[in-house]
Write a protein that binds this DNA or RNA. Structure first.
Lengths: 164, 164
DNA sequence: ATGGGACCTGGAGCGCACTCCAGGTCAAGC
DNA sequence: GCTTGACCTGGAGTGCGCTCCAGGTCCCAT
């Protein structure tokens, strides 16, 4: 009752599960991110639970921009046995820290973009004639009152000198 | 008193301020991310406040992975005048939403990585002989007690079938 | 037996965003 | 007058991470 359940996954199943192409899967294997995967007599790959698990982690790490080369090093540690666990922890922690810093930086940039949007929205409420209207129809031929320079928005540092 | 202050920036200054190389700066200009920048009689570029400002936004958008092609479109809108402000807002808002989703995804992945680290730390506290020691010196020749399969950590979905 | 589908291989190709290079100009300082 | 350093040009090259391809095998259903 417990020995006739499927104990492997086909390439197609794995590709679907992780949203990767067969090519990418093979590429990962060639690149050493997965151990040499088992084969059916036909030559087709048979992925085991271990592969699925490692692939899950690989996915996380790739999605967070760990380069293939570092992932390969990590995978080698996994293959080298349990005694490499302390080193694996170091690799993951250092990646984690980089990731935190990256997320923080993204948030800062997001803030800046938000400010720019707000600045634009302010311009639009000061000059409603710029607002997009449904279709055609100009209510004034838009005499262009000395085009806005946009200056000052996003100028957060002190580098802006007086213009002559 | 207000007309003899520097009203431009040299390429070197701009590169330093935005932490870009001169090559990248020229590449951005060629790619249409900046308007054709002013020149000194010598042919050297002279960046104005407007360029600095746009570059600031370009930096934010590139740092948040907006592709060069979309940035070029945005820069064209800026060049086309104030009447494109509504469209610029749309571009920025849509980028913002993608960015939020991306940040959320990064955080999820970070959680998963954290769990893996915790799992490893748990293994280390169960099997202290695996812990990295200062240098050399084995207290047991490490008889490798049936290598851990690692299975179960990170297996969050229900796809894991029984193994034969 | 025939066709279709899933998969195999080695190797070439691609898109992106830079990055580098050779050879040249210009302005300032010694 | 000569060197140095900052910058110029057009164009080629690079690294990364896939992605595509031609030609082949295997197995199953009609």
């Amino acid at each position: 009752m417990l020995s006739h359940m499927k104990d492997y996954f086909t390439p197609g199943e794995i590709a679907a599960r992780f949203d990767l192409t067969l090519d990418t899967l093979r590429y990962y294997e060639k690149a050493g991110l997965l151990r040499r995967v088992d084969r059916a007599p036909s030559g087709h790959r048979r992925y085991r639970a271990d592969d699925v698990e490692l692939l899950h982690l690989v996915r996380c790490l790739r999605d967070t921009d760990m380069p293939i080369s570092r992932l390969r090093e990590f995978a080698e540690l996994v293959r080298d046995g349990d005694h490499t666990i302390p080193e694996r922890v170091e690799v993951l922690q250092s990646h984690q820290h980089r990731l935190s810093a990256h997320i923080d930086q993204l948030r800062e940039r997001q803030e800046a973009i938000r400010h720019k949007i707000d600045y634009y929205l302010g311009v639009l409420s000061d000059r409603p004639e710029l607002t997009r209207r449904p279709e055609g129809s100009e209510d004034t031929p838009t005499p262009a009152p000395a085009a806005l320079s946009d200056t000052a928005a996003l100028m957060t540092d002190s580098t802006v000198k007086e213009n002559a």
